[in-house]
Simulated scan of single mutants.
Amino acid sequence: MPPTRQEKPEPRLVDSRAAYAEAAADIAGRARRRIDLLSYDLADWAYGTPGFCDAVRDLVLGHQRARVRVLVHDVRSVATQEHRLLHLLRHVSSFTEIRVLAEHQGDNRDESLIADERHLLERDTPDSPTARLCLDMPVRARAARHRFDGLWDAAGPATELRRLYI
């Protein structure tokens, strides 16, 4: 009997807010070194959940070289929220950075959550929870990370989201 080839993983469709929030927490929980998040407005229902925030906290407190980068489009709507994730990121700021998309990138509305260039959650619009969950898909995750890096390099600091804690 010939050896069977291992099946390639396929993206899984996520089609509700609850499933998206669960998938985001799962992706964050799988990270060991890095999380890159591109979000239109850091939807609290997706990124402000206890599961997601706890996973991010565990990453930055459990790994000396952990890094979390957050890139947002609509910084004004984020700044007016009392957001659990922002509160956490402000308290672990030596591991995190938040930037805002450059003006010429203003038509960008897709979102992606990338963990360690291995796992990816991506959706085409912030208006819908429909997304693709890509677990153990490094080629796809690296491509998303490459795109994220280009946006990140052109982005500016999100000064509206800074607060000093003394």
Rank of each mutant, 00 (worst) to 15 (best):
A115S: 10
I98C: 08
M1S: 15
P157K: 06
L85N: 09
A154H: 00
P129I: 07
I114H: 06
L164P: 15
L121N: 05
T125Q: 07
E22V: 10
N108S: 10
E82S: 13
H63T: 12
R145D: 01
T4W: 10
Q6E: 04
C134V: 10
D54I: 05
V75D: 04
S112K: 11
R99V: 00
A46D: 15
C134L: 14
R109G: 01
A144G: 07
G62Y: 00
R99P: 04
G106V: 12
Y20P: 09
A102K: 00
S39G: 06
G106S: 15
Q105W: 00
R34N: 13
G156S: 12
D149A: 11
V75T: 14
S77E: 07
D153T: 15
R76W: 02
A18N: 13
A23D: 06
A28Q: 12
D44K: 13
D110R: 12
W45E: 14
T96P: 01
A24M: 14
A143P: 01
D74T: 08
A131D: 06
F52K: 10
L135Q: 05
I98N: 12
F52V: 04
E122Y: 13
A19V: 03
A25F: 08
A23N: 09
V68H: 02
Q6G: 09
R123A: 14
D41P: 07
W152N: 04
D110T: 08
W45V: 02
L135F: 11
T159N: 14
V78N: 08
I98V: 15
R69Q: 12
V100R: 00
T96R: 13
R132T: 04
P50M: 02
L164S: 15
A154I: 00
T96F: 01
C53D: 08
T96L: 03
I114L: 11
R162I: 14
V72R: 03
A154E: 02
V139S: 08
E82N: 11
F52D: 05
A25R: 11
L42P: 13
F52L: 10
V14Q: 08
H63A: 12
H73D: 06
E111R: 11
L38N: 11
H104F: 13
E103V: 13
C134E: 04
D26P: 08
E122M: 14
P157A: 05
L164H: 12
I114M: 08
A28V: 10
E160S: 02
A55T: 03
A55N: 12
G51Y: 06
I114K: 07
C53Y: 01
E111I: 02
Q6C: 08
P11T: 04
H104W: 12
E7Y: 01
A141K: 03
S39V: 05
D58Y: 01
A143V: 08
Q6D: 11
L121H: 02
A115T: 05
V56D: 02
T125V: 07
L151F: 15
R69I: 09
L37Y: 01
L59C: 04
G51S: 09
A102N: 00
M137H: 09
V72E: 10
D44H: 04
I166N: 13
L113D: 01
R5L: 15
A144K: 07
R65S: 03
A55P: 03
G48T: 04
L133N: 01
R142M: 05
R33S: 13
V78E: 09
L161Y: 05
S16F: 02
E160N: 07
E10M: 14
A79L: 08
G51K: 03
F95E: 10
P11Y: 04
A19L: 15
